[in-house]
Design a protein around this nucleic acid. Structure first.
Lengths: 236, 236
DNA sequence: CTCCGAATTTGATCTGCGTCAACTGCCTTT
DNA sequence: AAAGGCAGTTGACGCAGATCAAATTCGGAG
């Protein structure tokens, strides 16, 4: 939320980029990748720094390289809905109005690959396969968005939390490998604002799931003790 | 929901198509349009017929020409969340898994322009500007989806209903011209499932808004008597 | 016009989750 | 090691909206 003091470092090499296969760049061949390298610059954000705000004019696209961001919208009276969390490989900045339609800030330290809008736009222009890749990511996000609508509109608090924990675990799998230790870098308030609950309800639900032997609350996350039972809660 | 008995008629001419400017086709020039004509066929669906179901393999794309569809997802126990309503100009069928990720059925009679997946895919392949147009529609939908998440997660029943009525009116404006008479072709149950409420709460909220002089409930819709007050409720 | 069934409205009651408030434990500062 | 602060947890209570139930309206069939 505070003013942005970022560190810009020389570009790394795309071909060494650990998240390339998950990202937009997956669609580029070696020659394109070398050209692409010059378009983006690595930028670091400290914990809780704002990366962009809703209604800001879009000047850049962002490719998350490291860290986690929260993406959210605010109502005029301050109520907040987190519309998603961005992980390494996620691509941000697509819009239709020339303005961002949500705000994004760093949870913990974040590194992004930042592309100025115009040159990036020109690069896409000549590369339909990159556009196709971007479209694929948009369509995937749309599908996730619809799943989340079901969660927000029709699920109970316990179902919401169970669904969130499983979904988060699954999103981390390609990054960290499969594990039932689920790190939760975001705060309880973030989880509440993502699930359309209050912080107290999230806390109580965590406690209940722990009492029921479904999870164990550990420092900085949870351990999924009984994934099957969690799946059952999430499916119901 | 019942088995589909559809009527297929000879293709109309794209250049006479009333919704062309709103639709994917807006990106095509005259020559392309003539070629495009042969790809799609007009198909009619009767009220309440299913157009496609979640988890069906995607075999076609659809361009809505006339009528309204509800797009929804079901939980295993039957709870339903409507993720959107499709109006003339909307394009359906994009996905990443080869399967639809929601179900769609006609509210009242519907006409669509149906494209078989493979030839349509080939047509796009050679026309990046069409892909760009499709991407634009996807990004716009994504933005709407996020707005709807805020509604589902953070708004009260009254705010939900007011927001819905205004949003629906605004979506109809390009089709019917501006008017404060808002036709509501969908049932109260549909509205409830769209807003994450029960039918009783929707009904009560309509009644309350009418009592407060914000709307008048008329046959097949509502009349927006005090748009300013409705805006205030929706903004809050 | 009358009857039937479905959609909607209205009423009475219940409850899941929100609100308000206090407490705990951990981390940082001095 | 004491003090202060913030994130998280727990408890008591209230309320918005769900649930259950009954009326009412409406549209279509005969």
């Amino acid at each position: 939320m505070k003013a942005s003091v970022v560190t810009i470092e020389p570009n790394g090499l795309c071909k060494d980029c650990s998240i390339r296969e998950f990202s937009v760049c997956a669609s580029l061949d070696d020659a394109e990748l070398r050209e692409f390298e010059h378009l983006g610059r690595r930028v670091h954000f400290a914990a809780c720094e704002s990366v962009f705000s809703e209604e800001d004019f879009t000047t850049s696209f962002f490719n998350v390289l490291d860290g986690v961001m929260r993406l959210y919208k605010l109502l005029p009276d301050g109520r907040r809905q987190i519309v998603g969390f961005a992980l390494p490989g996620d691509f941000l900045g697509m819009n239709v109005s020339g303005r961002h339609n949500f705000s994004a800030d760093a949870i913990g330290p974040v590194t992004v690959c930042q592309f100025s809008k115009a040159p990036f736009g020109r690069f896409i222009e000549e590369r339909p396969h990159l556009l196709r890749r971007i479209n694929e990511l948009a369509v995937r996000e749309l599908s996730q968005a619809r799943d989340h609508m079901v969660l927000l509109g029709r699920r109970s608090a316990e179902e919401k939390v169970a669904t969130f924990l499983l979904g988060w675990r699954d999103r981390l799998t390609p990054l960290n490998g499969p594990s039932n230790i689920v790190p939760l870098p975001m705060s309880r308030q973030d989880i509440a604002d993502y699930l359309g609950l209050t912080i107290e309800t999230v806390s109580r639900t965590f406690t209940k799931l722990e009492r029921d032997g479904v999870i164990e609350i550990i420092h900085g996350g949870i351990s999924l003790l009984d994934a099957a039972r969690a799946e059952a809660l999430a499916a119901a």
